[in-house]
Design a protein around this nucleic acid. Structure first.
Length: 202
DNA sequence: TGTCCGATTGGT
DNA sequence: CCAATCGGACAG
């Protein structure tokens, strides 16, 4: 497939520090081709790190291992996609080694390729409304539960390296929608490109 | 099997 | 502020 350069490999995802992976994912390009091979992609501008089993906000908190969370126990470099609120999907990247349930939730993208298709799927016109949220980006890219467990080095979905961001351009703060996590909710494990219009909230 | 609630979104 | 909407997790 042409134009498919610098696809992130095992070494990128297998690292120990999920916070580092979450930061490094900013600026990278998330790509999901259509059935006809057309590229639909967006620059990652917001992520959140989840560090089970100690992280109370993680689905793998306490070592919870169920049919749904099993994916998180796989080797780094696979997709963890789940369904929430009865209508939305969330796309995560599994990190670290097998049996270590760490993951990074991709929360927002800046549309890059296939923007018209993203507009049709989302029913919105402005670029900033297409993928500025975890549920929105899944709709825009056509990601559903069928992508759960997909190998990120395969041909269904992958991530390409982007230009490294300067530390100054990266902002961090508490993760969103995890008030049930007690003191873990305050940890600044959400990362985003400072002042970027496509970031989900705030 | 029954109940509770969610790693959200969009409209009021 | 709140409804939508349904599967996952867990109690019984």
């Amino acid at each position: 497939m042409t134009g498919r350069r610098a696809v992130l490999g095992r070494a990128f995802y297998a690292r120990d520090d999920v916070l580092e992976v979450a930061r490094d994912l900013l600026g990278c390009l998330l790509v999901v081709p259509t059935r006809t091979g057309r590229r639909v992609s967006g620059r990652i501008v917001e992520t959140e790190a989840y560090r089970g089993p100690e992280d109370r906000a993680s689905h793998a908190y306490g070592g919870r291992r169920t049919a749904r969370t099993e994916t998180m126990y796989g080797a780094g470099g696979t997709a963890y996609v789940y369904f929430v609120y009865g209508m939305y999907h969330q796309f995560n990247v599994v990190t670290n080694a097998a049996d270590v349930p760490h993951a990074v939730l991709v929360r927002a993208l800046e549309p890059v390729e296939g923007v018209d298709l993203m507009r049709r799927r989302r029913g919105r016109a402005r670029p900033r409304d297409l993928a500025s949220g975890p549920g929105k980006l899944c709709i825009a890219l056509g990601i559903d539960r069928g992508f759960d467990r997909a190998d990120l080095r395969g041909d269904r979905v992958w991530i390409e390296a982007g230009a490294a961001l300067r530390p100054r351009e990266i902002a961090s703060g508490p993760r969103v929608g995890i008030d049930y996590a007690g003191d873990w909710a305050a940890r600044p494990w959400r990362f985003w490109v400072r002042d970027h219009p496509c970031v989900s909230v705030r």
